[in-house]
Computed example of a mutant assay.
Amino acid sequence: MDACTTLVKAFPQKILDADHRDTDPPSPLTKAYGDPPIEVTCGVSPPAGMAQAQSQCFEVNGVGWYAKEAANGVIFTTIGRKLYLEIAVPKTYTPEANALTDVSDAVKAHNPLITPCT
């Protein structure tokens, strides 16, 4: 999980103008921003439904994502990268996908591409 720790550390101090905040419990695999929190988790399992989701892959600044609607917003998971990274963005931050532009540089630099988004 050292690769996840490096990736999470590379994330910006803000996502969608929401400041970085502490997580409870603290973990080198997670990061949170704002209130309600935008939650980042590295090292997750691929979400159910993602295997047949290649047509649902969308790209933001060179990073492929799978989006799943949740009760309180959208959960985005990287596609085609070595590590599965999840970003849960509450509806408060609509349009939720805008959060992905703030993290794409860190993902590209620290999470190697295996398969491009198609």
Rank of each mutant, 00 (worst) to 15 (best):
A32L: 03
R21F: 00
S45I: 01
E59L: 07
T23L: 00
T115K: 08
K68T: 13
I79L: 15
K68W: 02
D105G: 00
T118C: 02
A88I: 03
P95M: 03
A51M: 08
P36T: 13
G64I: 05
A106Y: 09
I114Q: 06
A99E: 07
A18T: 01
S45A: 09
Y93S: 10
K82E: 15
L85E: 14
C4T: 01
M50Y: 00
K14N: 13
N98E: 15
G43W: 05
G62Q: 04
N111D: 15
R81Q: 04
A3R: 05
S27F: 03
E39Y: 05
T23I: 11
A48N: 09
M50A: 12
D22H: 09
D17R: 06
T94S: 14
N72V: 14
G80I: 10
V103D: 10
A88L: 10
T101W: 01
P46I: 04
D105F: 06
N61E: 13
T5H: 06
P12E: 12
V74W: 02
I38L: 08
I114R: 01
A109C: 08
G49F: 05
A99P: 08
A106G: 10
C117I: 01
T77F: 09
T5V: 14
V89T: 10
Q56C: 00
N61D: 12
K31M: 14
A97M: 09
T92L: 03
V60N: 05
T94W: 07
P116Y: 11
K9V: 00
A10G: 15
G80D: 04
G64V: 12
T94P: 00
A99L: 02
V63F: 07
K68Y: 03
M50S: 09
G43L: 07
T30K: 13
P12K: 07
V40D: 06
D35Q: 13
G49E: 02
C4L: 02
A71Q: 08
L16K: 13
A67G: 13
C117Y: 06
Q56Y: 06
